[in-house]
Design a protein around this nucleic acid. Structure first.
Length: 195
DNA sequence: TAGGCCATCTGGTCCT
DNA sequence: AGGACCAGATGGCCTA
């Protein structure tokens, strides 16, 4: 009997002699069940903390079948005939690496955006959603300037938008209201401002 | 301790 | 067929 848990749990666990193994069994575990690498089917999450057996993973042949959990997930959904892509261990790992790289690039773009939007007295690092919302308002503010509105008028609209935003019950963000006031103040007083 | 934010894994879908 | 993109799930970390 083998019990699985996530890789992350393993790395944070100090007890290396534990009988708890990785949720991703070694290749030998698959071959033990008669599954070859080409038919690797990586759906083990439902069995975290549970005793793993070929029965509850529905491994009754040499080919891994979708487990009950996947059937539960797809139940109730209007599904057309789906293409089941069978990924090898190497393909799945490569996809994970690509996904990490994709998210890294996304975060790099967020960092660049954080450097552009004016935050002034805001000492805390903006979250991604804060960055996006601030950028939206900043663009709206600058658009008004470009369209000939005075800084005062544009700043008034920006302040109004900011107040609406802050008063939005859905918005739990506690942003200092000085953000946009200081933006307009900076435009007013700093001629070298490159905003 | 609850909630927010984030990283990561994963499978489905779209596109080349 | 395979990569990119996306959303759901999950767990860790931090803060109020």
């Amino acid at each position: 009997m083998i019990t699985y848990q996530r890789d992350r749990d393993i790395s944070s666990s100090s007890n290396s002699s534990s009988s708890i193994l990785s949720i991703r069994p070694s290749f030998s575990d698959y071959t033990f069940c008669g599954v070859n690498e080409a038919n690797y089917y990586p759906s083990f999450y439902p069995f975290v903390g549970q005793t793993w057996t070929p029965t509850n993973f529905n491994l009754t042949s040499t080919i891994a079948q979708p487990c009950e959990y996947d059937n539960m997930l797809s139940a109730g959904k209007q599904t057309k005939a789906k293409r089941r892509r069978v990924a090898s261990v190497a393909q799945r790992r490569a996809a994970n690496v690509r996904e990490r790289k994709r998210m890294y690039n996304l975060n790099e773009a967020f960092d660049q955006l954080r450097e552009i939007v004016p935050i002034f007295a805001y000492e805390k690092k903006l979250s991604r959603i804060e960055t996006l919302r601030l950028a939206i308002m900043y663009i709206a503010f600058m658009t008004q300037i470009i369209n000939g509105k005075t800084v005062d008028t544009a700043s008034l609209s920006a302040k109004k938008a900011l107040e609406e935003w802050l008063n939005d019950p859905q918005n739990s963000l506690a942003v200092d209201q000085r953000l946009f006031m200081e933006t307009s103040y900076s435009l007013d007083t700093d001629s070298s401002c490159s905003l």
